[in-house]
Amino acid sequence: MEAGAKCRVISLLVVCLVPAATSWTWNSVFLSGTKAGMPLAESIATGAQTGMSECERQFTWDRWNCPPQAFTKLHEGEPATRERSFMHAITAAGVVFTITKNCSRGELEGCSCSGGQGGRRRDWKWDGCSENVEFGSRITKQFLDALETGQDAKALVNLHNNLAGRTAVKRAMRRVCKCHGMSGSCATQTCWLQLENFAIIGNALKKEYRRASRLRDTDALEAASNSVVQLPQEDGEENSIPNVDARRLVYLDPSPNFCLANKTAGWLGTVGRECSRARGKDVAKEQRSSCRKLCRECGLQVARRIVTVKSSCNCRFKWCCSVECDTCVKKVARFTCVKPLMQRTNRY
């Protein structure tokens, strides 16, 4: 991520902190976080960035390529499309992931011993501390959910997608157990969760993006009225929309045609986008069909040009830091979507 994007995210966060500070639990966590070590706000900003870059990576070969500037408008009155639901979820996931990781590093001073118990202080000497992901999840919920101030269907959908993002991190964690009973037998065993790579979480959310379900406005509103009644006893990971799985992404509005440019939304269409004709077993389906989807189906042509790329090759690597490589010069074919010749000539 470039410095500009980082500044944008942090400024966004600062704007967002004002409504969030009204909740005292958040406030106390935030204050303890600023005492020493890495402040929580920085973790949240890094987390949002992690989510953003993963979103970009996931949508490299899709028509909509998750542009970073889309995140700055995340809480404005944009239509709640499938893409927007993914952005909400991946941001939440990124924040949970980063807080969990920083908490495990022991440098996040606001990190709490109790996780999901609604902030109930646990006695470490009596029953230990909860998993760090519980804390990460709780803070993310407090922070990101506080940004949804509305009581309408859109706010509810956003809340649910935040939940889906948090759930994705927990589900992607690997459960590891250690037997330590008599003579090392499994009479006693202890299990914990090992944080996985963020790419795994991104993949899981991309899968959910593909099978996201559209809510009819009335259904969501009905659900909204229900959940408002239930709000006081809400505790922990409560689903804001009943009858929808916590993993599932939901949206309200259909996506626009991303082939076409939309000046008001700041969308330029797929002209000039790069696609790939890489083949092979390890190449993902989206990448293989990218030239068809991005260019041809949008009425564009694929332009091929040969570029020379310098890259390191024949590396002899020792663990960490000393890599001895040769520099190879390769000629690579690059493909981009361009307007068809007909149209271009017509214009002249």
Binding site: R105, G106, G128
Partner: peptide
């Protein structure tokens, strides 16, 4: 009685 044991998972500096 709490669980027999618990875990503190730590990322190395």
């Amino acid at each position: 009685a709490p669980a027999p044991s618990s875990v503190m998972s730590m990322l190395g500096t």
